[in-house]
Each structure stands twice: as C-alpha cells, then as structure tokens.
Amino acid sequence: MNASDLKPTEPSADRLERALRAALQPADPGPAFTIALQARLMTGGARPPVAAPSRAVPRQLRVYHGVLAVAAAIVVAMGIAAQIEELRGAQRAALARAQQERVHSQLLMALEITGERLGLAQQRIAQFQAQEQNP
C-alpha cells in the first residue's frame, strides 16, 4: 500500500475522513451483551428463544391455518343445515298432528250426529210400537 493512496488530496477529503472516524467510534454493547454471551457459552451456544415476527408466518403454517378455517366453515355450515332440517321436521310433525286432531274431531262429530239420529229413530220406533199395541 502506497501511503499517498490514503492521504487526503483536498481539505474537504480530510474533513470527511475525520468526520467518518468520529462517526464510527466503537460503541459499547452494554452489560446485557456480556451476560447473554456468558449464557450462550454455558448452554453450548444456543440462542435465546425469540418470538416469531407476526408478519413472517411460515408458508406451512399459513396453509395449516387456511385448512383449519375451511374445515371450521364446513362444520358451521353443516350445523346450520342440520338445524334447518330439524325445524322443517318439527313443522311437518306439527302439521301432521294438527291434521290428525282435525280428523279425530270430525269423526267424533260424525259419531255424535249418528248417535243423535239413532236416538231419534229409536224413539220413533218405540212410539210406533206403542201405538200398535194400544190402538
């Protein structure tokens, strides 16, 4: 290395180099650095665990989350469909029960009417028999 290579050729160069030396003064890393280094030395060089940055989610984890979301959506959709089907079944059962009750009441009414008419017919037969025996 020729010494003249590093000599400033103009005053501003000299000032720039002095400014660079001042700006690049070694900075002390602090006591935490030494403690962390000692800890790593004692644990065989293992780095302390750090939380994964929120944006740097691995691709596999993103795919896993996506699959989970789709599976959850399918389960919810199936649950809703089952509930709708159950409601429809209940409605159908209620309609059938109402129809049965209507038929039952109509039958009772018909029986009642038939019973009344039968009673009237028996009364008339009884009256007719009584008239024949006692003319």
Binding site: L24, P26, A27, D28, P29, R47
Partner: peptide, 28 residues
Amino acid sequence: HQARVFSLALRLTGRREDAEELAQDAFL
C-alpha cells in the same frame, strides 16, 4: 474486543439485534 466487534457488526447491519447476535456468534 467486544466493543469493536459489536460496532463492526452494528455499522454493517444497521440493526442492534443483528449486531449483538453476530458478535456473540463470533465470540462463541
């Protein structure tokens, strides 16, 4: 050497966390 090694890593990476890790790796 810790101040110089750490500072070298700090000026090259521009991040204190990276500099600490690189310097510790170098000392290990």
